[in-house]
Design a protein around this nucleic acid. Structure first.
Lengths: 229, 229
DNA sequence: CAGACTTATTGTGAAATACACACCAATTTA
DNA sequence: TAAATTGGTGTGTATTTCACAATAAGTCTG
């Protein structure tokens, strides 16, 4: 305990806000705390940083330990360091966020998290620590990000329809977009490859399938193009 | 010394990137370190955070102690936490930045900084620690910020000309702007009060003087207007 | 005081973009 | 074959962007 006490005199942690898309809703990955403080409360997956560990590395490690998620690209947002944000001592935390395709990953909570699961953004209740504030900040950052870079495309199946893409943006941005204008804008960017295939198994006119044209995108970026939705 | 050693096992600091405008150039406030490590090197004004001190407070305090600057509004950018960024131990640092009018402040270096002075951005050499990286990150953030909010207006005298305003933006953004388009855009925002006064003491046609219309700006913001240069 | 000098100020046309909006097309299923 | 459902597309208007150059209002010099 004394070791813990001294560690807590001045410690830092990382907290991860993992946004996920399941085909229709924007969600966030939360764990239910298995120990005090805030036992049984939902919280962001986070933990202390080892003394000899880089912050980015720690964020990845902690995420994997708590939720089983490996190889997730995380981006730092900022530090949260209010004196009393942690009831046991002075801990500042560095917030990271990411956006992943839920179906690409299997969530397997660590023993010291009772459970880890996806929660719709709109239905997130009161979280442990200052995690609601962290979540809000990261959500704002995410919305900004998806407008500026085509991250969204990664969240869909390799072949997707324009309607699916639009729904994705609508659920992340939490606003309705005009169908015609959305399609016009996206198609005019030349980032989509028309696969000349049609959707199957739907009880209505099938939609065309597209694929994100990564090579083109990278070339455009190199030439100074900027995605802007 | 043992107290310092234990503190350094896991400490956090703040570093401040104070941008200043002197009427023509964008500068940054640096101190020359008076002690090891990096003795005599130029560095950002920063220091450790007290255990019972909020990060934002620490940033203000450290800035004041090192440079004499009081009441500067600072905004957090992000944390820098590479394991070996500090030669004496594990110290992560939280970077803050600000943008001030140089003539509003008197810089008085603390005894343990040999000196504190303004350096043109373009002429900043190799700094202590990872401070070049921090500076670069903050500069990018600043450029983004001045395009999105009318912070720039604060840096000019209460009465200024459009040319002065344009020069300010050009030196912060480090790019040339078209005169007519700049004026049209700025004036169309209705953020400037035409003072019906003319510049004096210049050997050419005197320019009209303007004043930033803060009340108007705040009302526009409340109505959902967004500054965008 | 005239002419040179320096910077301030202003407007226009073309092009691109944003936006609102409504109808026909292709498929399934009853 | 008709209804239901979603996919797909085009046009006109308003707004914004951008590039661009001539005149105006002072000071300075001889």
């Amino acid at each position: 305990m004394s070791e813990i006490e001294s560690f807590f005199k001045s410690a830092f942690s990382v907290d991860n806000v993992i946004f996920g898309f399941d085909g229709s809703d924007l969600k966030v990955l939360l764990i239910q705390r298995g120990a005090a403080p805030f036992k049984d409360k939902w919280a962001l997956p986070g933990d202390l940083v080892y003394p000899n560990e880089n912050l980015d590395t720690a964020a990845e490690r902690v995420l994997e330990q708590l939720t089983g998620l490996r190889g997730v690209y995380l981006e730092q947002v900022k530090a949260f360091g209010a004196v009393n944000r942690h009831p046991l001592g002075r801990v500042i935390t560095i917030a990271y966020y990411s956006l992943i395709k839920i179906s690409d990953y299997v969530v397997t909570p660590a023993s010291f998290a009772q459970s880890a699961s996806w929660h719709s953004i709109a239905q997130v209740g009161e979280l442990a620590f200052d995690h609601n504030e962290i979540l809000d900040t990261c959500l704002r950052r995410l919305k900004h990000k998806v407008r500026m870079t085509p991250v969204g495309f990664e969240l869909l199946p390799p072949k997707f329809t324009l309607t699916e893409l639009q729904q994705l943006y609508e659920s992340i941005l939490d606003e309705k977009l005009d169908k015609r204008n959305f399609r016009k804008k996206i198609l005019s960017m030349n980032l989509l490859l028309d696969l000349k295939e049609l959707q199957e198994g739907v009880a209505h006119r099938p939609a065309k399938l597209y694929q994100f044209d990564r090579a083109n995108y990278e070339q455009f970026v190199a030439e100074g193009f900027s995605f802007d939705l």
